[in-house]
Design a protein around this nucleic acid. Structure first.
Lengths: 341, 341
DNA sequence: TTGAAAGCGCTAACAC
DNA sequence: GTGTTAGCGCTTTCAA
């Protein structure tokens, strides 16, 4: 096999025109059933493989969706991508993936590559500092739809699929404050990020609702949300004899680290200090005590946002609006925050 | 902006030929430095974005690598892909990703799509049952290089990058047998899989070396390697009063589940039973006791295999051989398998 | 060092 | 229903 079969080869063998072959292969209504059958049989026989590249060039459409996430290996993001991938393939779209590593420069470079590859649309959970906002806007101006998931920019008026971060954080905080009127420490990621801002707002609401003074009773710390950093920080607090009896972590890894530091120092959890996390990593339920957390429907998020984007790609005129979809996450209360058992 | 700028637009404005523009943009030696500068300036000014689609069609090359893994959301695979992505982008390649979900049918469908998209090469950790082997071979026949990572087929003579599964499992088993001459239970994934076969071979070697009877002392159980399944199974064993004092799990999730079941039943780990896992998931070190495991260089695996594939794509004639690269993983001994402390 | 011209494989407007 | 024709935007001989 020295050369791949083209529609022209098939046409020649069948003594018909290549455009008829094209139509037959694309199941066009106007071509006779009999011709269709002949073409399909011959295509099979000659082991014809359509050349998407050519079709794409002609159609000015790559059938490809570009996805940008901070880190591919974070459980939450790889799970969302699993959802994206599934939905996209169902609709005949390819998915190309990049990681920004939280660097907006890298993110822009990736987006440029995608632009050159003529992706039909972008799905992104953007890096939160830097000048990527302007670049993303310019992509929209070029009629390439950019949809957000999980993270977003308020400034950009486009469709996004988010979690109910504020409400669930408020609910979580309510749950804690019902059991304690002590002092809370919050470990959060970058405050610029909408998700963290939303969650903190939820916490503030809850404090206000309970008539508690946030100046005195609430201490918010912005840190890299990793196991090690969190463990180290909480250890320091304990050494300095700072007092708190609730530890609210914005992800499970930080909660694990914090829990570890507390237990190492001989604290009882939840009696001396309650600990809660976020994201429901598989391990959170295995700790002693098991950690209270929030389950986020990550696969669903991927599917939903992809479905909307594909609809936009396939019928651009029909999309005259942008919408914000809020997916409901769910509180999972476990021993690490249950004093009354 | 109603229409994207092409090289022809630039050529017209500069009153030169589009092929000169093409050459200038590709930094061809034959074009005068002065012309190059003019072209580049104009391209900038007109906000020219190269159309990869067109270049790809002309060059019969998509600059895209197809990646197939069982599950995108498994930590090991998403980490390998992070490495693949990084290496590929450094060399100007895109990466499209599919998950097979361990279904060979789905895998073949994905591969076909990639074929039509004219990927320049495939990186795959294949599903281990089904008729995908034949399909993969046929891709190689079509001059599309297929490289394996982590998993592979002995029957296919192509480059692959694997872990030293057999050696490390033997080392792990040695470590256990030095401390016990009791009975071992192994929780493994599908035996058809080369990785599990290799690891089991390592265990057998270790038993033989220690002069122990595998008929009596070794019990191998093939199960889905999930936390829940493992926990359930070990719980059953305990209820049935089956006796074993070493639990060798082929991943950390299974080890976590097993550990949980043992602790729930009041067993002391490692005194009553040692527990070991595989893959060094972040949580393994957080358990009480911390779990002995194997660190696998996943990012490195992704980078190495991608580098080799790209070399193959760029200089196909120079590749007259296939090679097997074995990456060294590393034993991480922790409290769950240390009786002498 | 540059220009002219052909063509990658496909689709789609138009004609019959 | 089918054929004719004209590109999509780029690269790459070949010629000058």
């Amino acid at each position: 096999m020295s050369k791949a079969t083209t529609i022209h080869d098939i046409a020649k063998r069948l003594s018909i025109n290549s455009s008829t072959v094209s139509r037959a292969l694309n199941n066009d209504d106007r071509v006779a059933a009999k011709t269709k059958a002949r073409v399909q049989a011959m295509a099979e026989q000659m082991n014809y493989q359509p050349n998407q590249l050519a079709a794409n060039l002609r159609k000015q459409r790559s059938n490809t969706i570009g996805v940008v996430v901070p880190y591919l290996s974070r459980h939450f993001f790889s799970t969302v991508i699993a959802g994206i991938e599934e939905q996209a393939h169902q609709h005949g779209f390819n998915v190309i993936i990049c990681q920004s590593k939280e660097e907006s420069e890298r993110e822009i470079k990736n987006l440029e590559t995608m632009l050159h590859s003529r992706v039909d649309g972008i799905l992104i959970s953007p890096t939160l500092a830097g000048d990527n906002l302007a670049f993303l806007s310019s992509m929209m101006d070029r009629k390439i739809p950019v949809y957000f998931f999980d993270r977003h920019f308020d400034e950009m008026d486009t469709t996004r699929v988010l979690m109910n971060d504020q409400a669930i954080a408020e609910e979580m905080c309510d749950h804690l404050l019902q059991q304690s009127s002590g002092s809370m420490r919050v470990l959060t990621g970058p405050i610029q990020a909408s998700i963290y801002r939303a969650r903190i707002q939820g916490i503030l609401n809850s404090f206000r609702k309970h008539g508690l003074n946030t100046e005195e009773k609430l201490h918010i710390e912005e840190v890299p949300l990793t196991l090690d950093k969190s463990q180290e920080l909480v250890k320091q607090w304990i050494q300095r004899q700072e007092s708190f009896d609730m530890l609210f972590c914005m992800n499970d890894m930080a909660a694990l680290g914090g829990l570890q530091a507390l237990l190492d120092a001989g604290y009882q959890v939840p009696q001396d200090c309650m600990v809660v996390g976020f994201s429901n990593e598989p391990v959170s339920k295995l700790m002693h005590p098991a950690i209270t957390t929030v389950h986020q429907p990550a696969v669903a998020m991927g599917k939903v946002v992809t479905k909307k984007l594909i609809q936009h790609i396939e019928e651009p005129e029909s999309i005259t609006y942008s919408e914000t979809t809020i997916l409901k996450s769910k509180l999972i209360i476990r021993a690490s925050s249950l004093r009354n058992e």
